[in-house]
Simulated scan of single mutants.
Amino acid sequence: MNNFEVKLVDSLSFYERCLHSQVDENSFRYEIMQPFEEMWRYLSVPLVPKTPGGYDVVMASEMLGIWTPRKEIELIKSKVTSLKDTNIFRQYNQVINESVQLFNDIGYDIPVNEFRLNILLGDSENNILMASEGYSGFGGIPGYILLIVVPNAFNRTRLKSALAHEFNHNVRFTYEPFNHGDVSVEDYLVIEGLAEVFAETLYGVEQRGPWVQEYDQEELEYTIEVMKSGREARGFDQVSAYMYGDEVAREQGYQPVGLSRNAGYTIGYHLVKDYLKNTGETIAQATLTPSRTLVEESRIFD
Rank of each mutant, 00 (worst) to 15 (best):
274 D>W: 08
92 Y>F: 15
171 V>P: 06
148 I>C: 09
294 L>G: 07
109 D>V: 14
237 D>H: 10
45 V>N: 05
81 T>F: 08
25 E>P: 02
70 R>I: 09
28 F>Q: 03
134 G>Y: 04
85 D>H: 13
265 Y>D: 01
223 T>R: 00
271 L>K: 02
275 Y>M: 11
28 F>D: 05
75 L>P: 03
31 E>W: 07
165 H>Y: 11
146 L>Q: 13
202 L>W: 05
13 S>G: 15
237 D>W: 03
154 F>W: 14
162 A>K: 05
279 T>G: 10
216 D>W: 05
160 K>E: 15
53 G>D: 10
4 F>A: 11
98 E>S: 10
198 F>L: 09
291 S>A: 13
21 S>N: 11
273 K>D: 06
225 E>W: 00
149 V>R: 01
301 F>C: 09
189 L>D: 01
207 Q>G: 10
106 I>G: 09
68 T>P: 12
270 H>V: 13
93 N>M: 14
276 L>R: 04
219 E>C: 00
26 N>E: 15
250 R>D: 08
249 A>I: 03
146 L>P: 00
112 V>C: 06
62 E>V: 06
276 L>H: 05
296 E>P: 02
273 K>H: 03
157 T>K: 13
211 W>Y: 11
136 S>W: 02
214 E>S: 15
18 C>E: 08
175 Y>T: 01
141 I>C: 06
40 W>P: 00
300 I>N: 02
249 A>H: 02
107 G>L: 09
161 S>N: 13
140 G>A: 07
